[in-house]
């Protein structure tokens, strides 16, 4: 169990209020017709499944119902950073 700070509600709330929504920064391919089967498989099914600090998407499902980004340790569950999609994207992520 851990707390997550919702960047919209600006409050730290119990993780139970939120739902995980998968790894972050997996962009839908811009030109789907040009993709090979391998690239499609990678987009749809393959994941980094990183052990360590992991950027992922969460939704404040029992709150404002907005999606946002969380950098969380998959080893300790510690939440290190939260951000909106406007603030951080795959270009400027650290």
């Amino acid at each position: 169990m851990f707390l997550i700070r919702c960047p919209y509600c600006k409050e730290s709330r119990d993780q139970n209020e939120f739902s995980p929504a998968g790894e972050a920064f997996i962009a839908r391919p811009e030109n789907p017709e040009a993709l090979s089967d391998e690239e499609w498989a990678d987009y749809v099914f393959y994941r980094t499944n990183h052990k360590g600090n992991h950027w992922e998407q969460w939704v404040h499902s029992s709150g404002c119902r907005k999606y946002f980004l969380v950098k969380r340790s998959t080893i300790t569950h510690e939440v290190l950073e939260v951000a909106t999609f406007e603030e951080i994207n795959s270009e400027n992520v650290s």
Binding site: M1, Q15, N16, P20, E56
Partner: peptide
């Protein structure tokens, strides 16, 4: 639990 983890513990929920 729906989130990724390597922590060998889950949530109380």
């Amino acid at each position: 639990d729906g989130y990724n983890s390597y922590a060998q513990r889950g949530s109380a929920k």
